[in-house]
Computed example of a mutant assay.
Amino acid sequence: MALPKAEDLDQIEEIEQQWAVKAMHHAETYYSLLEKYDCTKMRLTKIDDELYEDFRKTFPHINVELLDEEDFKSPSAKEAWREFINRYENRVRDYNFGSLLRKDYREGYTESNTMFAMRTQFYCVEVARNKLGLNRVIYKGDASS
């Protein structure tokens, strides 16, 4: 495999910047919705219930209140998530897009409370948090931003 040329690196950096802007916009929009609406009445996808059930069955050990990055980033977790995410390739819009995910549901999107995730992972965690009513802390205005 050939090494990228200098001009290719500029394009890669530009793509990464565009991704970061898009991911941050998605995060800000979602957080704004959580501030304005009761999370237990929100639907993030057309298949929220199915995603939730499959997520809880496949990853019962994941604590959605306080995420452990190892549950997403370790080699075994990456493989399990890759298989899970690919099941939704034609069913979840932007299923493999990058997203920002809050580690602690009680806090906003800060540098220390944010991790990179795939869109399907974001949906799984946030659908679970919404179903459990955890994100109500934001709606009530009790979370820091």
Rank of each mutant, 00 (worst) to 15 (best):
M1I: 12
M1P: 04
P4H: 07
P4C: 10
E7F: 11
E7L: 11
D8Y: 02
L9N: 09
D10P: 03
E13T: 13
E13A: 15
E14C: 05
I15S: 14
E16A: 15
W19G: 15
V21K: 08
V21C: 08
A23P: 05
H25L: 13
H26K: 14
Y30M: 03
Y31Q: 13
Y31H: 13
L33S: 13
L33H: 14
L34R: 11
L34K: 13
E35W: 01
D38G: 03
D38F: 10
C39R: 02
C39W: 06
T40L: 01
M42Q: 08
R43A: 07
R43C: 05
L44F: 07
L44V: 00
L44R: 05
I47Y: 09
D48S: 01
D48Q: 02
D49Y: 03
D49E: 12
E50P: 03
Y52K: 15
D54Y: 11
F55I: 00
F55L: 02
F55C: 03
P60C: 04
N63H: 03
V64L: 04
L67T: 04
K73W: 05
S74Q: 05
P75L: 11
A77W: 02
K78M: 11
E79Y: 12
R82D: 15
I85N: 10
R87W: 12
E89A: 13
N90Y: 06
D94S: 11
D94V: 06
F97R: 15
L100Q: 07
L101K: 01
K103P: 13
K103T: 12
K103H: 09
D104I: 05
Y105K: 06
Y109M: 02
M115D: 01
M115I: 15
M118W: 13
R119E: 12
Q121T: 03
Q121R: 02
Q121C: 03
F122K: 09
Y123K: 01
V125M: 05
V125A: 03
E126G: 00
E126K: 01
V127Y: 02
A128N: 00
N130Q: 02
G133S: 05
L134V: 08
L134A: 09
L134S: 06
R136E: 10
R136D: 10
I138F: 01
D142N: 11
D142H: 15
A143Q: 01
S144H: 11
S145K: 11
